[in-house]
């Protein structure tokens, strides 16, 4: 019995979140197989074969999988499931889209956003915006798990020697079709994979003022995030949101600027190694989790900080 990891990728490169999921998979018993579903995957499959901990790469390479539509990816996963004891994916927007669908077709109750593997059937996950840790046990024959990427290290990208097996494609469901995609184009690192994250909140007052954070971020090689308040106010797009309903990050350094620190935001960043809070309200709850707090006007401090680095 083995573990199947559904990879996250853009047909060209494997996302780091896949390596976190593979690392989680190696904590479970049995060989680890990595499933690549997409179109034009030969190069990626070849490089994925050297990831440490992967025994076999399964490649479903077909134009019908170009956009990795949930209906088609889930039915492919279901067709493979009988050979596995565990199905895993990173708890990203793709994993959360596809895996519950596959689980329902298998009559399995999936477990979302696992932060620790306790035993073969017991897992830890957070509930109530990270306010509580629940330890849960699954009685299903196949365990379907999405794993929180910040809770597991990256599997080493080299040192392995997996075999590569081509799968024949299923048929497209025809239920949905791809129309368009707008991906944020910038040279900054991806939020969930960045070593340093600079995030802004309502204190920034408007979207234009986020340019202060972009300048600081570029000096630090950082990604830029935002609180839900800043997203709700329309300052920045939702894919920058850090928190319970946005992205979960755990960088080496997290700089929270003009963020009060609602529990929903803390849920997305409190596992960061070092937290800096800059806020003019000395009573802001963010200071309770910050390693270094600076009570000051961000419009004076951020340019000065950018200058000082």
């Amino acid at each position: 019995m083995s573990v199947l990891v559904v990879a996250e990728h853009d047909n060209q490169t494997l996302k780091p979140s896949s390596l976190n999921a593979i690392q989680a998979a190696t904590q479970l018993a049995g060989p680890v197989h990595l499933l690549l579903v997409g179109s034009g995957l030969a190069a990626m499959a070849a490089s994925a074969a050297s990831i440490l901990g992967v025994d076999k790469i399964l490649v479903a390479d077909s134009p019908i999988y170009l956009h990795q539509l949930a209906e088609d990816v889930a039915s492919l996963v279901v067709s493979l499931a009988s050979g596995y004891k565990y199905l895993l994916a990173p708890a990203t927007s793709h994993g959360k889209n596809v895996l519950p669908r596959a689980a329902a077709l298998l009559d399995v109750q999936p477990i979302s956003d696992v932060i620790a593997i306790e035993s073969a059937d017991t897992f830890k996950r957070l509930i109530y915006a990270g306010s509580l840790v629940a330890t849960v046990r699954s009685a299903d024959a196949i365990k379907v798990l999405t794993v929180r990427t910040t809770a597991f290290d990256l599997a080493p990208a080299s040192g392995g020697n997996a075999s590569v097996e081509a799968l024949s494609a299923g048929t497209a469901s025809g239920l949905s079709s791809f129309v368009s995609e707008v991906l944020a184009a910038n040279d900054r690192p991806e939020l969930t994979a960045a070593r340093v994250v600079v995030s802004g909140g309502r204190g920034l007052q408007n979207g234009e003022n986020f340019s202060l954070l972009y300048t600081l971020a570029d000096k630090l090689g950082a990604a830029v995030g935002a609180s839900r308040a800043a997203v709700d106010a329309g300052f920045v797009p939702n894919d920058m949101q850090v928190g319970q309903t946005g992205k979960i990050v755990a960088p080496d350094l997290y700089i929270a600027v003009g963020i009060s620190g609602a529990v929903q935001h803390l849920a997305g960043m409190k596992d960061s190694k070092v937290i800096v809070a800059i806020n003019k309200d000395p009573d802001a709850p963010i200071f309770q989790v910050a390693d270094y707090g600076l009570v000051a006007d961000l419009f004076e401090v951020i340019p000065a900080l950018t200058q000082a680095l």
Binding site: L175, S177, F178, S180, E181, L183, T192, P237, D239
Partner: peptide, 12 residues
């Protein structure tokens, strides 16, 4: 809302 941006799908 997907990681990194927006995707539009047409569903029957």
């Amino acid at each position: 809302e997907i990681d990194g941006g927006l995707q539009t799908l047409a569903l029957n």
